[in-house]
Amino acid sequence: MIYLCACEEPELGTYYFETDQDGVALRQIVIEEDGSRVTSHRKHELYHFMLAEHPIDLSDPSYERIPKARFEELWSEVLLATMEEWRQIKQALPIGQKVAGSIEAFFPQGTLVDLFEHRAVGLADTAFLKQHSPREWMYPGYKLTASVKGYDEINQWVLLDQTRMLDGERRVVER
């Protein structure tokens, strides 16, 4: 993995990335000027799920390589702030539990799913969903069911298995 820091504009905050060897971002932290943090592992009310959409040019001089320990220190601070909520989510969603949700976003790790009854983020296998669902259902808002197969402690995501799209049903978002 490669760890980067970028501070391109003073009013945009400082960006930290974990990428693979091709520059594909896997985790991202933004520390805004006021000290607040936006991370890729949780949905933000303004920025949704924030993760670089295109590979980062690793030769771009505006990105400075940083030690893994620095990135992990910042990431751990974020996880600690939500540790009690994460503990409650795992208690409410034991392995084997059936869940319902809707597609939120597509990340390199898989499809992020809003498990709305539990205020949790699930992770489904995108390749499996694509293979077993019509293409037109592979968009944010489409509903699915699944079983809990485990937990991603690094991102505080619920790992999903046995996913099944619900016949093109979409979640209605009230505004």
Rank of each mutant, 00 (worst) to 15 (best):
A81S: 15
T82I: 13
M83A: 14
W86M: 09
W86S: 12
R87Y: 08
R87I: 13
Q88M: 10
Q88K: 13
Q88A: 15
Q88W: 02
I89H: 02
K90F: 04
Q91Y: 07
Q91R: 12
A92H: 03
A92M: 08
A92R: 10
A92W: 01
L93Y: 03
P94M: 12
I95E: 14
G96W: 01
V99N: 00
S102C: 13
S102Y: 13
I103F: 04
I103P: 00
I103T: 04
E104N: 07
A105Y: 11
A105G: 01
A105P: 00
F106L: 12
F106Y: 12
F106N: 04
F107I: 02
Q109E: 15
T111I: 13
T111D: 08
V113Q: 07
D114T: 12
F116I: 13
F116D: 12
F116R: 06
F116T: 09
H118Q: 11
H118I: 03
R119G: 13
V121E: 00
L123K: 09
L123Y: 10
A124Y: 00
A124E: 01
D125M: 09
D125C: 09
T126M: 02
T126S: 14
A127P: 00
A127V: 12
A127G: 02
K130E: 07
Q131N: 06
Q131V: 00
H132C: 04
S133M: 06
S133H: 04
P134K: 13
P134I: 08
R135H: 05
R135W: 01
E136C: 04
E136P: 00
W137M: 06
M138D: 01
Y139K: 14
P140Q: 06
G141I: 12
Y142W: 02
Y142R: 02
K143S: 08
L144K: 05
A146V: 11
S147V: 07
S147A: 12
S147E: 14
K149Q: 15
G150L: 10
G150W: 05
Y151N: 06
Y151W: 05
Y151V: 07
D152M: 11
E153P: 01
E153C: 07
I154C: 02
Q156M: 13
Q156P: 02
Q156L: 04
W157G: 06
V158D: 01
V158N: 05
L160G: 05
L160M: 14
L160K: 08
T163V: 15
T163S: 15
R164P: 00
R164E: 15
R164M: 12
M165G: 11
M165F: 01
M165P: 02
L166N: 07
D167Y: 12
